[in-house]
Write a protein that binds this DNA or RNA. Structure first.
Lengths: 141, 141
DNA sequence: GCGATAATTAGAACTATTCCAAACTTAGGC
DNA sequence: GCCTAAGTTTGGAATAGTTCTAATTATCGC
């Protein structure tokens, strides 16, 4: 079984779990995200998907991305004003935004860190998710 | 000396430090942010400022907010797609976004937490700032 | 006060996203 | 296998938030 059809299966399962259907558009959008994990915008996903599905519309790309976010297969990320970016990394991780290159890197987090961070919340605050964003520069290489 | 003129002095100093001028518009925008710290959008700031400066334009509000961010008197915050929000709290703090009310709360952070969080960065990553966003719900009250 | 520079203004332009209504697809019941 | 209902896609129009532009106005140092 190819990696891609494994993904397709996982996707189909998550979708049907929510009463949704597996469609070629959804599969291709998801595979595009998995293939190049550079936090693309909807427009960038659109461009990449077109080579496989030339007739897909931008509205569909937005729909598919939204669906994947709902299914929790993909995270939508907003660092600053500007287009939303999409990230298929489901492990607990932070984002490092390099202000020189504009690139975003995933930073894996040790298992206990999010708990430690959440422990600063006062009584009565119930966090469902925690997002950590670093901004700065990376060493020349 | 009134609180407001203290702010005005602090603002004027920061501005001239960057070769910028103190203007009524910049002062009023800054005071509006300090007065009601509910993370308003540019539109909301515009509405509030109008009562004092009825002829101010929305473009000027955007300019002033941008200037204040440059001077590091104000932080711009983007939780998700949607308008940028502005926060005059300069202490180290996280944001808690209540998904029910839509409101955003500041969560003060212990002095060492940001260092602790930053210590997860691999060699070669040099973070200039760290942002922490919680999402969830707050207790009924 | 004068000139140079900076800031403000209104409106047009632009970008990212959502909405809409029509066409198409799919799954399941017969 | 066909029909129907529901879900999905599509292109274009509409919207929201922000930035740009060119003209006017204000401010600072001299």
């Amino acid at each position: 079984m190819s990696i891609s059809s494994q993904n397709a299966d996982a996707l189909a399962e998550r979708l049907s779990h929510s009463g949704l259907r597996a469609t070629p558009q959804r599969e291709v959008v998801y595979n595009v995200l998995l293939k190049k994990r550079d936090h693309p915008t909807a427009d960038e996903v659109f461009a990449r998907v077109k080579s496989e599905l030339p007739t897909i519309s931008l509205a569909t790309v937005y729909n598919c991305l939204e669906t994947l976010v709902q299914c929790e297969l993909v995270r939508a990320v907003n660092f600053e004003r500007g287009p939303t970016r999409y990230c298929p990394n489901l492990r607990p991780h932070a984002h490092f935004h390099d202000e020189h290159t504009g690139k975003t890197h995933d930073i894996d987090l040790p298992a206990d860190l999010l708990d430690k961070v959440s422990s600063v919340l006062p009584q009565g605050y119930d966090a469902k998710s925690v997002e950590i964003i670093f901004r700065g520069k990376t060493a020349p290489h």
